[in-house]
Write a protein that binds this DNA or RNA. Structure first.
Lengths: 184, 184
DNA sequence: TGTACATCAGTGAACGCGCGTTCACTGATGTAC
DNA sequence: TGTACATCAGTGAACGCGCGTTCACTGATGTAC
């Protein structure tokens, strides 16, 4: 059956949202188009009315995930604290796309990589405004290094099957640099 | 045809070595058993003489990759410099398994996760011996934070399609903490 | 040391399943009058 | 405002390919004598 124009827009948004969560939870390859469409409340055949291919969906999903309009401006200390929380560690599907899919996006289409690249640029610029450091150059380094440690830290914290080591990874990355300098 | 016992051992080692490189280059899902066996110079049917399943191969490969017998003791500064090099960024197949596959191993078998967990413990312990810091606790935090930043930093440097940003990510993580403190 | 034969690592064809993709169809939408 | 009909978003069956896995077979190895 045909569907209203607004419903079409909503369905498309639901597909992208479902895809984003599933991709982060299971990785691009393990997620089926039928999974995505089912989670969006549709049947798999309708997929090609919205996207050219699965690769196209991946690219569009990456673009959506890094849309700056979707994100609040981060404040370095607060951002890092909530990033390196147990909550974020546990909820991959709702969490940071770089931590969940960073290692896989390299092998996706140029469009997908480009979307995440542009998203990262914008994000690092914003993070550098509130990062610790005497001058702009130092703050930029702190933002780049800080976000690298967040991404690597939470990825390792998720990977590890030892809860103590996992907590230690979160804690060490919350403590290092910023907090140490503030108190030391 | 049957094959000598030594040849069998050698073939098995070749399969694991081929798998490790291919997994790091393309991810677990995208690598075919036929790919692995072909790279090891064998045909795909012989696979099940060595492993119970693809999952088993994944677990064995993770165990092999983190075998401490295979790795030299890292010295913090030197290790970080070579880790965050262009060479390491370019050669994923020969590089660090945590950076290449860390995000995917979470979804693999418990055995695979466990192998990488034990490997990480041993490695962090070793890295903490030469990490910067006044006391043991500080050095351990520096090791955890330093390695997190290396893993996240090189992952982002590989993902990004902008060479300038990629170099900046490597440089920022080489400079931060250690080098800054040494010169400042 | 030499011979006969059982073993078994590797081969390559085959199987079955699941996935991305296609397509004829349906029936609600939205337009033309 | 109401009616008739063309459009087209979504449905679900079908297709074909590639993958993990199985299996009957081969022929070199290594053991028993």
């Amino acid at each position: 059956m045909k569907v209203s124009r607004e419903q079409v827009r909503e369905n498309r948004a639901n597909i992208v949202a479902a895809a984003l969560t599933l991709f982060k939870e299971r990785g691009f390859d393990a997620v089926t188009l039928a999974d995505v469409m089912g989670k969006a409340g549709l049947t798999h055949g309708g997929f090609y009315g919205h996207f050219r291919s699965k690769d196209d969906l991946v690219a569009q999903t990456c673009a959506h995930a890094t849309d700056p309009g979707e994100r609040a401006k981060p404040v370095f200390d607060a951002y890092r604290t909530s990033y390196l929380s147990e909550r974020h560690r546990e909820d991959v599907g709702a969490g940071c796309i770089y931590a969940a899919l960073g290692g896989e996006v390299v092998r996706q289409t140029p469009q997908a990589r480009h979307a995440l690249t542009e998203g990262l640029k914008t994000f690092i610029d914003a993070l550098a405004l509130t990062a610790p450091g005497e001058d702009e150059a130092a703050r930029r380094i702190a933002a780049l290094n800080g976000f690298s440690a967040m991404v690597g830290g939470i990825m390792l914290a998720r990977l590890v099957d030892d809860p103590a080591l996992s907590d230690e990874l979160l804690g060490a990355n919350r403590t290092a640099l910023g907090e140490t300098r503030t108190t030391g």
